[in-house]
């Protein structure tokens, strides 16, 4: 499929690049970053101009991010209201929303750069989780600048080895994402072990305290 889209870039130019990037920012499985690299490769060969390729990539990401955020925000009320009917779920939702408000900008920025495979999902979660549009945009737009410049630059620099470099970047991003999940799972595991240890110790401690009162 990637090859088919690559063959369409010389015909449809930056419009195709921008459109595919936009759709991939909505989590539609299309080779957005690959086409931006192809655009960078065509800039290097003199087939395309640098500024329109950069602009198409940047606008595609920004519009895609904002659309995903808006869709999730609009669907949020109905879905959340239904979920909040259960007290337990309502508490979990409140906690998740508080986390997004506290750490949202960092999550959005990282998901536009080193954790870019997670980008579309973070847009949806931000919209659904009630993260403010200003905070979302303040992290997403600089992230989009870095993302666009990185992939156009990589395409330009490694123009004659695009497939190899795309595969290498894909695996490197996979490694970063997996390592992040590993760290989070490790922290979760440690917290779980601590909680278990505290629960086992508490009855003895409580008994000792009771003994003192006697």
């Amino acid at each position: 499929m990637t090859e088919t889209f690559m063959a369409l870039v010389p015909q449809f130019g930056v419009y195709l690049v921008g459109m595919i990037v936009f759709l991939s920012a909505l989590a539609i499985p299309l080779p957005g970053s690959m086409l931006v690299m192809v655009g960078g490769g065509f800039v290097a060969s003199g087939d395309m101009e640098l500024v329109p390729v950069l602009a198409a990539a940047f606008l595609g990401v920004v519009l895609g991010d904002q659309t995903a955020y808006t869709l999730a925000r609009q669907g949020r009320t109905a879905v959340l209201e239904r979920m909040r009917r259960s007290d337990k779920r309502a508490r979990q939702i409140d906690r998740a929303e508080a986390l997004i408000r506290r750490r949202g900008m960092l999550a959005v920025f990282l998901s536009r750069t080193v954790l870019s495979p997670a980008g579309p999902y973070v847009s949806y979660v931000s919209g659904a989780g009630g993260f403010g549009r200003l905070g979302f945009s303040m992290a997403a737009i600089p992230g989009a600048v870095i993302w666009s410049a990185f992939y156009v630059g990589i395409g330009y620099r490694f123009a004659d080895h695009l497939s190899e470099i795309a595969s290498l970047i894909g695996n490197a991003l996979g490694l970063i994402t997996a390592a992040t999940i590993l760290v989070l799972m490790g922290l979760w595991l440690i917290r779980g072990l601590r909680d278990t240890a505290a629960t086992e110790i508490r009855p003895e401690g409580a008994a000792a305290t009771e003994g003192k009162h006697d």
Binding site: L168, G174, L175, L182, L189
Partner: peptide, 23 residues
């Protein structure tokens, strides 16, 4: 959590191997 941790570890090793081979 243990299953998730082990799965993430397998993924890290897989991607690390792929990155090294492709480099």
């Amino acid at each position: 959590a243990v299953a998730g941790f082990l799965l993430a570890l397998v993924l890290v090793l897989y991607f690390a191997g792929s990155v090294m081979r492709e480099m």
